[in-house]
């Protein structure tokens, strides 16, 4: 995990309010609505381990779910973005973003929309990240196994950005 900088003043309160008050895309439950989605081998292992496709792990918000667009101020390149909302008790099981890792020159960034709370866990390989502040940006290798869970009493909202260097 490489720390890039803090961009807290760029994060709009309205974005957080909108995410909190809308359902987004329920994952993995809503995957069945989009037959073009192909699970990678780590994700397929979830269901062999006992997780269910009908589960609601967390909510994802893509551009089509939001009234706003994201132009990451630290990244002038082309990129995709999505926002993760995890309510207490929600999680994403361990996985590597293998399909993304096969793309040459792809970079992944992670930005919390609120200060770290006790019980907000992001584990990258064997390390967890704590004490972060709203707007902190970290670059990480998404092909390495990672996972996240919210075992606190308050929602956890994270912006994910994937940059493709031309």
């Amino acid at each position: 995990m490489n720390y890039i900088g803090n961009f807290s003043s760029w994060v709009q309160d309205e974005w957080v309010s909108e995410i909190l008050s809308n359902p987004g895309w329920s994952l993995p439950k809503d995957l069945e609505k989009d037959p073009s989605v192909v699970l990678n081998s780590d994700e397929r292992k979830w269901f062999k381990a006992g997780y269910k496709r009908s589960d609601h792990f967390f909510s994802a918000f893509y551009k089509e779910h939001c009234s706003f667009d994201i132009k990451a101020p630290w990244s002038p390149q082309s990129w995709d973005w999505w926002i993760v909302k995890m309510m207490p008790g929600q999680f994403i099981p361990v996985h590597g973003d293998l399909s993304m890792a096969t793309r040459k020159n792809a970079k992944s960034y992670w930005m919390p929309f609120q200060d770290w709370e006790i019980g907000h866990v992001f584990m990258h390989q064997d390390k967890t990240i704590t004490n972060y502040k709203k707007g902190d940006v970290f670059e990480y290798d998404a092909s390495i196994l990672h996972c996240a869970v919210n075992i606190s009493l308050v929602p956890r909202i994270i912006l994910q950005v994937r940059e493709y260097v031309e």
């Binding site: 006992g50 997780y51 019980g119 606190s152 009493l153």
Partner: peptide, 9 residues
């Protein structure tokens, strides 16, 4: 704990 189980903080 089976996969997907947890203890809140």
């Amino acid at each position: 704990m089976h996969p997907g189980q947890y203890m809140p903080w």
